[in-house]
């Protein structure tokens, strides 16, 4: 049985990927998630400079949804150089087949800063650069995400591609648009090597009725977790049909069956974020056991066969 996925020139031992913003603050944590069994790991979004993020509460979950407004806290690119460098050193010391690829996620508030940070991330040398143009939680600071305007998404892609050297670039899109397929296609046209879909929905809000106060310190936050899964599957489906580059799909994945569902909608890799809240960091190994069981039951020998299978 083969569960490995070739994606933009990197070999992922399996399709599960730690989503950006979950457990990705330090290199040793990424390593821990890789050792547990993730097929790929993504850094938290890295800024050029230190970025504070919002006050707490920054996140919470119920049985139906997870909501967060961490506000992209980060120590800046110099810290990333140290932490991601540590991860890459460990990764490269592993035997072939056990080298879990690193996706370096970057964020910026302006096109010029994207050029700068992308160039520096390329020097660090992750397997893929993922460009977060879709965070709904810093709108107060930076206005509407680039991912919500086709021309902006395309322009960020062009600029990042111009400095990313030989490192493949994935553009991470927002689900909060009516035309995600069109936006994905515009990114592809500017040279994007992959699309990540999707970031969180919303923004949403949770109000405590005993104090009549919104609970998140930022009041609003991005919604993820089980409740968004059907919405995210449809976005991945739309993107996969609009482009011929591969897709990292995510949004509400909790089980092995969810992983296969996203793959059937057209995703080659599948991100897990809020799932860590519901099933702990062991979710990566647990989910892959479930995937393998399903493969056995259904006589699937090579997992990549299921990619896009529902798209007729």
């Amino acid at each position: 049985m083969n569960t490995s996925i070739d994606f933009c020139g990197a070999k992922f031992p399996n399709p599960t990927v730690l989503a950006s913003g979950i457990l990705g603050v330090i290199g040793d944590s990424l390593k821990n998630v890789a050792e547990i069994g993730a097929g790929g790991v993504t850094s938290k979004s890295v800024w050029l400079e230190r970025h504070e993020g919002h006050k707490n509460p920054t996140m919470m979950g119920s049985e139906h949804f997870y909501i967060n407004a961490v506000g992209l806290p980060d120590g800046g690119i110099d810290k990333a150089r140290e932490e991601l460098g540590k991860y890459l050193e460990w990764k490269n010391s592993q035997p072939e087949g056990k080298r879990v690829p690193l996706i370096g996620n970057i964020v910026a508030g302006t096109i010029a800063d994207f050029e700068n940070i992308a160039g520096q991330m390329a020097e660090i040398g992750p397997d893929i650069i993922e460009v977060n143009i879709s965070c709904p939680n810093v709108e107060d600071e930076f206005g509407r995400p680039f991912a919500c305007v086709t021309a902006d998404a395309a322009e960020v892609t062009r600029i990042v591609k111009s400095v990313s050297k030989n490192i493949p670039v994935a553009i991470k899109l927002s689900p909060n648009v009516a035309n995600i397929g069109e936006i994905a296609a515009a990114c592809e046209k500017q040279g994007a090597d992959a699309i990540t879909a999707v970031n969180t929905f919303g923004p949403g809000m949770v109000i405590d009725i005993d104090t009549a106060e919104p609970i998140l310190a930022n009041k609003v936050g991005g919604v993820s977790g089980p409740g968004i899964k059907p919405l995210a599957v449809k976005r991945v489906w739309d993107v996969a049909q609009a482009v011929s580059i591969p897709v990292i799909g995510m949004g509400g994945v909790l089980t092995g069956r969810d992983v296969i569902e996203f793959m059937m909608a057209g995703a080659s890799l599948v991100g897990i974020g809020a799932g860590v809240f519901y099933r702990g960091s062991e979710i990566f190994s647990d989910v892959m056991l479930e995937v393998e069981e399903w493969m056995k039951e259904n006589g699937v020998k090579d997992l990549s066969e299921v990619i896009g299978k529902a798209v007729k």
Partner: peptide
């Protein structure tokens, strides 16, 4: 921050957890 092992802010070096 989260108390639930999600955000990663309290991960310790060496163990990575």
């Amino acid at each position: 921050k989260c108390g639930s092992g999600v955000c990663g802010n309290c991960c310790v070096d060496g163990l990575g957890v």
